[in-house]
Design a binder for these strands. Sequence first.
DNA 1: GCTTGTACTTGAAACGCATCAAAGGGGCCG
DNA 2: CGGCCCCTTTGATGCGTTTCAAGTACAAGC
Lengths: 369, 369
Amino acid sequence: MAKVKISDVAREAGVSLGTVSNALNHPEKLRPETLKLINETISRLGYLPNQSARQLAGGATKSFGLVLPRLDHGFSLQIASGAHNEARKHGYDLLIANADNDDILEDHYLRYFMGTQMSGVMVQPMASPDWHPAMTKMPVPIVHLDIHCSEPGYYVAADNEAQGRIIAELAIARGAHHIVVVGRAAFMQLTLRVLGIHKALALHPDIKIEVIDAGEWNTAADGYGIGAQIAERPADERPDFVVGLTDVLASGVVSALVDKGISVPGQVRVAGCDGNPLAWSGSVPLTTVAPPGYEIGRKGVQLLMEQIENKAPAKIKHIRVGSAVRTVTAVAAEDINRQELVRPFLLERASTQASSQTDATAINLGAYL
Amino acid sequence: MAKVKISDVAREAGVSLGTVSNALNHPEKLRPETLKLINETISRLGYLPNQSARQLAGGATKSFGLVLPRLDHGFSLQIASGAHNEARKHGYDLLIANADNDDILEDHYLRYFMGTQMSGVMVQPMASPDWHPAMTKMPVPIVHLDIHCSEPGYYVAADNEAQGRIIAELAIARGAHHIVVVGRAAFMQLTLRVLGIHKALALHPDIKIEVIDAGEWNTAADGYGIGAQIAERPADERPDFVVGLTDVLASGVVSALVDKGISVPGQVRVAGCDGNPLAWSGSVPLTTVAPPGYEIGRKGVQLLMEQIENKAPAKIKHIRVGSAVRTVTAVAAEDINRQELVRPFLLERASTQASSQTDATAINLGAYL
DNA sequence: GCTTGTACTTGAAACGCATCAAAGGGGCCG
DNA sequence: CGGCCCCTTTGATGCGTTTCAAGTACAAGC
């Protein structure tokens, strides 16, 4: 099992070491018959180039690293899918690491990728990346996804404030008088959603708004608890519109309301954020504001490419992409899955319309349902 | 943006190059104050070890590569999840590459990982790995997942033949008289399922069996087409049990039957294979035979570890794990998702009972539903 | 004061490859 | 036949580490 190296191939083929190297990296420089001879020797000997050595000798390879917080979240997968396709389009490899919701691990993989002579690295960070000052003076281009970071950093993110605004406007359009926002704004993203809601409602002082903390983890159970509490209120104190800061929360709320005999959306409308089809387990159709993960992954790679090709800081350092309003049923959720995950280009086509370097817009994907 | 290297740290800290290296790799060899000094210098300078160089100089690093055909398939994610947890348990990193259903890309990433001085590589191959003879004499341990390969190779796979047997026995237990198997046996896995069905039914010559090809890609649409055809048959030529070789096919069949006014499971029972919750879009509860992806990923890493630690071919080279029979509804599918993907240890606990070095068993996860 | 031992530290060698200046070979022209 | 140029091949050099034999400093024991 002794590894065969380039010098073995050279000796065996009766050429020099540099020629074999050329056969691998600059085949056009070789005479066809030499190339053929070398290639045959390579496959006869089962030679595999040592990537570490070639990276060491030759500088960065054409590959990107992507650190995700989890793999089982549809949104992260959309990011991965978009990043993958865009990377391949430019001839780059994409390697993915699963940080498993663990700060330490996230940092670990990030450093790993940095040190592997990757051409660029992307993260969908769990916390704000500002905690680590070294991040900003990294030796390789790095782009943050789905999160806003301080000035020197690059990011591609959905405009969470706009999401809040969109959902508030939705509530207004549906004639809401009393809105309850459910969830703990544990992350920046959620805080911004709340902010967006407040800003949009500032113009409508007649609409009553309440924000209810849902417990540390924003679980479906937390949502259920609050839903139950809402259900038990006298009818005139009950909201007519509930916003879950995440779809998981919203789904909990819906379950509770339905269980307590309150009609959704008859008596109370419920909307969520995330566009997370897996959260919708009931048969009640629900509305969600969905950030375009595929597009975020794609733009992330584009940002990387720009830095690489121009050898200079890109002109555009921050990209905010719009979100889509969707009405989702349990059945339609499957369709979304197929369209976004199995055939992501469908989403791509739709959401590029909503992409913008400056601000977010809402588009309607209703045609898909 | 000039990268700071180990010699810079050494110079800056006033120690030698080897000492800095020791600080990184064998901290116990250093005097505490030296270690502290070096660590401070490292973070002051923002030094990041060059992974390529350390791999080159030091041999394999503690990391595994995993090549998956797609990321958006729940089963692959279960594999990734199981592999990740097991790898971390041993202190190894796991890097994932998405082959995007592309042979060439699969091969590409495989070679990439091989050449990166990974400690081991796993693949969930699209085709039988026998096509590439070089595979068998690879310089690093390699384990195939979810597929059987010829003698010299290592693999962990669900026993697909057993899956067929299980589903046939299910049909028998439900009193089936006429079974239709839907799908093109394009892959080894599917072929084995059909084989298992036939073997189980060999003991029941009174049961009529039909195998219907579903078109090249085994899509839901293919399933729908066949379902429609079945629906239009006169009642006495209609099967009372349909097996989809994949869940996607089965779901297509169900849609067609329901659309044509045939009751499922009243007039026709339908079962699938894969345990793929995303395929179940309807509200009709359906039965599927589910291979334990999480367990497969886990065992794959264990097989790798065994080869690494013993520095010799592992005693056990093939592991077949059992599958579970589940009854799935659209709502329950969500629960499965949560349990298997978000909290995979639940599945782990359940399926280890079914794991065996020798043959497959069926276990019932009904308690989860 | 000398020896022996212990606890750290040093720096040269090697890891496998890409690069590139230089050498080699062959054809063409004068 | 000599000179020139172009196409192809060569091999020494260095990439940033780890490793390890050799070195240093210091303490304890005699």
